[in-house]
Structure formats: C-alpha cells, structure tokens
C-alpha cells in the first residue's frame, strides 16, 4: 500500500532528517533518517529516553546535531536561524506557560510574534476547549494547560506541527478533543503533523506513518497499514518433533505443550502454506495491535544487537 503515501520528491516532504547524530554524556542519537510526507500524520513511538524528544528538538532547531542535515518546509534548519520556526508549531510536555498570567495574556503575546495568527480561530478554539480567557495559568488543570498551549500553537496556523507527547496524561474527553483538533488540521492537505506518544492507541488511530525508535536508533519506519498488514500473531498446534520453519520474520514467542505462538512481521499469503507444509495445524491468525508490534520490534532489535 505504499501508493497511499507518495513523496518521491523533496517538494512532497514537510521535513527530512539525514544522517543525524548527537551525543550526550549518557545518550546518543545514531544516524537518524526520517522523512515526513506533506499532508500526513507521523507517529513517533519509543520507550522513555529513546530519543524522541531530542529528534523533535533537532527538527525545531532547538538543539543542533553533531552531524547531518535537517531540512524543514524546504529550508535548512539551524539553531541560529529563527525565521524557519515561523511556520512550525512545537509542543512539548516539558513546556510551561507563565503561571501568574492569564490565557488571554499569552494569546496576545504569541499573537504579537506571528503575523499568521487567526483571531477567529483562536476564539473558536477557546470555546471548543472550554477555556476561560481571563483565567490565570496557575489555576488550570493539566488538561486545560495542554489545551491552552495547543490553542497558542494552532491559532497561528503552522504548516508543520511537532508535538511531543500531546496526549500524555489527558483524560479521555480532553484526549478526544485534542485528537479531533489535530485531525481538523490535516483536513488541509498542505499541513503536516509529527507527534510522539507512548500511547500506541492514539498513534494507531490517527497516524498515516509510524517510526519506531529505541535507544537512539530508528528501528523501523513505514506506512501504518503496512505494519498492521504485515504483522500477525499465529497460534499453531504441533507435534513434538516440530521445529520453526525457516521463514524470514517468523519468531517463536511462547510454547505450551503442543501450542506454539509465533509472531510474523512479513506476513503474506504464502506464509500460511509454508507453515502448513511444516506439519503444523494453524489454530488462528490474528492481527496484532500497534503496541504488540512495537514491543515485538523493540525486543527483536535488542536481541539482534546482543547476538
């Protein structure tokens, strides 16, 4: 299904990271490649400390990589060039507003820095998010604070949204409101979203493509549906002398007496035949959730490295 996401040319890309490395005392990003197709939603999934936030900060020009190139919306990003940030909206869970000041004060402040600020849209968001303009930030709940920050970002109508854990810690209603607003953004096919989450359900729901990150590496990247189609959990009933057939991507996850549970990351029609040829009886073939796929990908990656 690669035809669903097309971007063979740079013009179709909202952002591109090439060969990015960045070293810290206890953490390293290694040769990161990432391509973000214009008009799409990319989910960045990774355990805590995998490097998601650093990648996003590099894209924003907040952190300069040790090597490699970053281009966003057709321009090369560097930390000394502030103008490139005009069209990017960045949210991070680590970001705070000025506690004593009101939501409205922040709106005026942000508005003064963005010619693209849309008053009508800001007023709509204020209403839809149930925020009170004159309320001081210190009195806001976590969910209201996240929504206030998103309002400040969305109302300037950025072409690219870089959102680091936007749904983290939100109650189900706030999460629904936030995801809904994000999906409204990509109704415009020239606007793009990159967001990270460890809630794989959010990512599964709204992402077009997915990038898995673990320990500073991109361990897997691609179209979301491809992942879901390719990965299957297979339950087999086998005899004692059965061994796992030599098929790329097939991995034994657990066994119990005659039961074998396998995961397969390159599932195709011929897979079933090959398994049946091995003498096993297929009990079931079930799709895997993104979370299961993610965990399995991380574990496989770590096993390979330790070999």
């Amino acid at each position: 299904m690669t035809t669903l996401l097309e971007a063979s040319t740079d013009a179709g890309l909202a952002a591109r990271l090439q060969n990015i490395t960045k070293s810290y005392a206890h953490f390293q990003l290694k040769k990161i490649h990432l391509e973000l197709v214009k008009g799409s939603v990319m989910g960045l999934i990774g355990p805590n400390g995998a490097g998601k936030s650093t990648i996003m900060r590099i894209l924003m020009g907040l952190v300069n990589p040790d090597s490699g190139t970053v281009s966003v919306l057709g321009t090369t990003i560097s930390s000394s060039d502030a103008a490139a940030k005009q069209d990017i909206g960045y949210f991070s869970d680590d970001m705070r507003l000025y506690k004593p000041e009101s939501v409205g004060w922040h709106m005026q402040f942000v508005r003064s820095l963005y010619p693209t600020w849309d008053d009508q849209y800001a007023a709509d968001l204020l209403r839809r998010f149930g925020l009170i303009e004159h309320q001081a930030v210190k009195g806001l709940s976590h969910g209201q604070r996240v929504k206030a920050m998103l309002l400040l970002i969305l109302a300037r109508r950025p072409k690219l949204l870089i959102l680091d854990e936007p749904t983290n810690g939100l109650d189900p209603v706030a999460r629904h409101e936030v995801l809904g607003e994000l999906m409204k953004v990509v109704e415009d096919e020239n606007r793009t979203i990159l967001y990270s989450s460890h809630n794989t359900q959010d990512v599964e729901q709204i992402s077009d493509s997915i990038t898995f990150i673990d320990r500073g590496h991109v361990i897997s990247a691609g179209n979301r549906d491809e992942y879901l189609d390719r990965w299957k959990r297979i339950r087999l009933q086998v005899s004692d002398d059965w061994s796992v057939p030599n098929l790329d991507g097939l991995r034994l996850e657990s066994s119990f007496r005659s039961l074998r549970v396998l995961s397969m990351n390159q599932f195709q029609d011929s897979t079933m035949e090959r398994i049946q040829e091995s003498g096993a009886t297929i009990e079931s073939i079930a799709p895997m959730t993104l979370e299961e796929i993610f965990v399995s990908t991380v574990m496989r990656g770590r096993e390979e490295k330790s070999l």
Binding site: M60, L62, A82, A84, K85, M95, Y98
Partner: peptide, 17 residues
C-alpha cells in the same frame, strides 16, 4: 526551572534575540 524558556524558544526567536 519553570520551563517557560522552552515555550519562548519554540517561537521564531534566536538565542541572540
């Protein structure tokens, strides 16, 4: 410490500004 700096720096502002 209050993490408002990240909010400011995410806007079109250079370190020099």
């Amino acid at each position: 410490t209050d993490q408002t700096r990240l909010f400011v720096m995410s806007m079109p502002i250079s370190l020099l500004d």
